[in-house]
Design a protein around this nucleic acid. Structure first.
Lengths: 338, 338
DNA sequence: CATGATCACTTTACCGGTTAAGCCACTCCG
DNA sequence: CGGAGTGGCTTAACCGGTAAAGTGATCATG
């Protein structure tokens, strides 16, 4: 039989469509015997409820959306998002929710996608990542009343809940560790300056370095790509007061930085210490393996997914603070030379 | 107004629902004046057709699916799939098709997802990647008559079209290049042996090496992860007749291999040449930058998407041979020592 | 023994689109 | 001037579910 409907089941079981619906949804209104018979028939003919029909009669679309507005060349090598997605899936799949993905070019386009998705009732909620200062997406989401969860923060998201981890604390941990090793000139290669978490990390970095009375604490802005990370590193290493340690905002840039250092004849970690943010397998793949700020990104994604599903179900939701990134020392950090 | 429907538009325009539908879909049956008025109202109140309602009344779901059955730890660092996805999106977005993504654990689970998606009419077609020998997914897709496109091949896919590139030719190009440099002992670190394209590359590799009369041409099976790539490399470099060049089945393993070689005190490319398959930014991120077999993965994905959309529209479709991977020499290849 | 409650269903309306069929006012033509 | 054809709509059925309201039989209760 070709794509059976509840009408087919009803016919076979000799009952009405309504009875089938009650039976399959575990609702009262049918006897246990009938329910079992109907479920058996459904299984036998391989019935799956038509999601469109279900969504149409008031129910949910059983899908959530994720838009990514970073260029493909960044996404392809950036392990963060796939980790996040695998975390989403762990939660979504168990509740038969689908994940709809769309790559876009800008936050403005993201807004357009949200409007369309919601208007079409294609999704019940969305994940929002890469929060910016005065993000254009937030007011639109509120206007649409589209359930959403912001990944990363904390930021000004009004009524929209966030899942965030304590970046400031993690920065402090890394800087204190380098300080304990004896470093006094530390630099930081950041991601896109317009992203809120970049700013939060930057402020924390400046503050801790000031507190510790460092000689210098420069931040060079990059964009998460290896090219930019390499360029920023080259710039730092050529400066008069060369830093003895560099903290990178993601592991791709850290790997690129390692490569630049080696290319310039510096030994890592003897001449230069390197700390990566986010600890994908990439960090263990290079030589020396990179000291990194590790966090369980998949778990982060899973928490966000639970949060979003709760928001969709109109359960009360609060911001979640996920476990902070923890420093995982490896071979790329050591006391400074001299 | 909250999520307007065509009934709202009909009310405002003083016409029937049917007229609105005709007007918005460019069908005959309404005057130009009325059509314009209706379109203006639709735009004004921000109307988006409910995708569920549309899908329900015989039309398409306007979504396609992609399942990935590789472990998250591979997916997160493997740049191939994000590249592919960005290629899909380029085609899909322009036709307002959504991409539904699901990560699974095995081809058997993929089959389950296909059944469910198709039963629920959630997707109009699917992308199939990582084809295996006697793949369990193919007969199911044919049984379901679910439109599909196989990424990679060629394999036995019956009536399902494929988009593939000439891996055998690419292998030959890489081997001939190394041969021209003077190498006589070449090894290969492969991806999962059960994948069809791994086998195709392996056969081509063996054949070309035999033709060129190489002293040795070993293949060590790995799984696309850095760990395994590193382990395979270590194994190769410890063997009695150490190869002077290694070809890797993806760039992640190549990067790991480079790292292992350096860790073992070998200079790349002076003591060991390295060639990567697929040329993500990763290859230019390490030092020395890796010689790679480059192809335009996004374009590959775009072709597959066009193919799938044609199959969904029941247009005649043929297998597509995409541009083969081309050798991009960089700093990781040189004549062998001695 | 009439009344009410409960059970196990069936009937029906509805979600928001698409589309075949029907209808009315005009025009055109022999 | 009657009849056919056509343009521009309206009406109504349908897609496949969900859920409120209705029905008839059984059973308990005062």
């Amino acid at each position: 039989m070709k794509r059976p409907t509840i009408a087919d089941i009803a016919l076979r079981a000799g009952v009405s469509k309504g009875a089938v619906s009650y039976a399959l949804n575990g609702q009262p209104g049918v006897s246990e015997a009938t329910r079992e018979r109907i479920i058996a028939i459904a299984r036998e003919i391989g019935f799956n409820p038509n999601s469109a029909a279900r969504a149409l009669s008031g129910a949910k679309a059983a899908a959530v959306g994720l838009t990514l507005s970073r260029p493909a060349r960044i996404l392809s090598v950036e392990p963060f998002f796939m980790g996040l997605i695998s975390g989403f899936e762990a939660e979504l799949a168990s509740r038969s929710y689908a994940l709809t993905l769309q790559l876009v070019d800008s936050p403005e386009q993201e807004v357009e996608v949200y409007r369309r998705w919601w208007g079409e009732r294609r999704v019940d909620g969305v994940f929002v990542s890469d929060l910016r200062d005065g993000d254009v997406r937030i007011p639109v989401l509120q206007e649409l009343q589209l359930p959403a969860v912001v990944i990363g923060g904390p930021g000004e998201t009004g009524s929209i809940t966030q899942v965030w981890s304590d970046d400031a604390g993690a920065v402090a941990e890394a800087v204190r560790y380098l300080s304990a090793l004896g470093h006094r000139r530390i630099a930081r290669v950041s991601g896109m300056a317009e992203l809120l978490h970049t700013r939060a990390r930057g402020q924390a970095f400046d503050e801790v370095c000031r507190t510790l009375g460092f000689e210098s604490a420069v931040t060079v802005a990059a964009d998460y790509t290896g090219e930019e990370g390499g360029r920023a590193t080259r710039q730092l290493l050529m400066s008069a007061s060369r830093p003895t340690a560099v903290i990178y905002d993601n592991d791709v840039m850290a790997v690129a930085g390692l490569s630049v250092a080696q290319e310039m004849g510096l030994r890592v970690p003897a001449d230069l210490s390197i700390v990566a943010w986010d600890d994908s397998p990439l960090c263990r793949l290079v030589h020396p393996p990179l000291t990194a700020l590790s966090r369980d990104i998949a778990d982060y994604g899973a928490q966000a997914a639970r949060q979003l599903l709760d928001a969709i179900a109109e359960k009360p939701v609060d911001d979640i603070e996920a476990a902070p990134a923890r420093l995982t020392p490896r071979g790329s950090t050591a006391p400074p030379p001299g």
